[in-house]
Structures are given as C-alpha cells and as structure tokens.
C-alpha cells in the first residue's frame, strides 16, 4: 500500500480501517513525535501525547476536510494533546530529550558520539522557548512554511520568522562543534 495518498487513507479510516491508520501513523508519526517532544521534553510523555492526538484525530476524522492537507490538521491535534498533557503532568526532567535512546546497531564509539550529540541537542533546545523550538523544528526539519506554522501555532507569521531566526542562531552557537562535523 506504499504511495497511497493521504486522502484515500483518510477515507478508509472513516470506515474504521486499522491498516489505513497504521499507514498514516507510519507516515506522520515521526513528525508528530518530534513535535510532541519539543513541547514535553520527555520521550515517554511525548509518545503518550502523540497517542492521545492520533486517537483523537481518528475519533474526529469525519470532521476533517479532505480537500485540505492531512498533516497540518493532525499536527495541530497532536500539539494540543501535548500541551494538554503538559498541563496535566509534572514534566519529568530526569529523562532528558532522547537521552537514553541510541541505535542498537551502532558501534560503541559512534553510539557514544550520537548519545552526546543528542544530549547536547536536548540541552540546546531546552534553552529555547517552546514556541521557538516548535517553529524551528517545523521549519527546518519538517519543511513547513512560515505561514503554515503561524496557522498551526495561532500567531502572526512575523512572529514565526522571528522565532525561527533566534532559535537557529542559538542552536548554531550551542551546537557549533557538532555542526562543523555534520556540515
């Protein structure tokens, strides 16, 4: 079922098709999880929020306008779910963003390097306000336009541009040693 458009998967989801749901999760889940982690800064809480968001999206799928793109609609629901979960829970700081998640197949030295980079990235992101974290990730990692992010976050487009600019500048300073290797 590879390459099936979202509109068709959504139509099948309305009928309760679990396989279509799985395809949508596979396609949009990673972006949703990144977004939730930017808000909650805890991997487990973020996945719980994504689960809440995905199930909420399925429950209200009949209200989705199929003429519009699916991902921004889903991301808004996930973002609200993450913010709602943050309000309900005390954010656990003990497990930093992605701190203990490393590739099982990577060799030890590379594994350590990845873990270190991940930890530094988590620290750098933690210095940013939530809105800036979300904005820079959606823009640079997910390919959203400023306008789409503004609509998602319910802020003016100029605010998004400013957030992305400041977030990038801070990340580049804090991650400078790693960026030299990556870039």
């Amino acid at each position: 079922m590879a390459g099936v458009p979202d509109s068709e998967l959504v139509a099948r989801l309305v009928q309760g098709d679990e396989e279509a749901f799985g395809r949508l999760v596979a396609e949009h889940g990673p972006a949703a999880r990144r977004l939730a982690r930017l808000v909650l800064r805890d991997a487990n809480d973020a996945d719980d929020a994504v689960q809440d968001g995905l199930l909420a999206a399925w429950r209200s799928i009949a209200r989705f306008d199929p003429r519009r793109p699916f991902r921004p609609w889903l991301m808004r629901i996930v973002l609200n779910a993450a913010r709602d979960l943050r309000r309900r829970r005390t954010v656990r700081q003990t497990q930093a963003l992605g701190g203990d998640e490393t590739s099982r197949e990577a060799p030890p030295d590379r594994q350590a390097g990845r873990a270190l980079l991940r930890a530094r990235l988590a620290e750098a992101l933690a210095t940013l306000p939530e809105r800036a974290r979300v904005a820079v990730t959606l823009f640079d990692a997910e390919g959203y336009s400023h306008g789409e992010i503004a609509e998602l976050l319910d802020v003016p487009e100029g605010t998004v541009r400013s957030d992305v600019f400041h977030a990038r500048r801070n990340l580049r300073v804090l991650l400078a040693p790693f960026l030299e290797e990556v870039g």
Binding site: F21, A26, G29, D47, L54, S103, L117, L179
Partner: peptide, 23 residues
C-alpha cells in the same frame, strides 16, 4: 544542517513498534 540534526536525533528508530502500539 539544523534540519538534519533535528530529524535524526529527536526520534528513535522504533517506527514499526510505534505503529503497532498505536494500532
């Protein structure tokens, strides 16, 4: 560069397990 860093390091490689969990 920033985009690649964020994509690669924010989500672990457990996509399939996550799909199963959601289903």
């Amino acid at each position: 560069v920033i985009g690649r860093l964020l994509r690669e390091h924010l989500v672990p490689d457990d996509k399939d397990a996550f799909v199963v969990r959601m289903q």
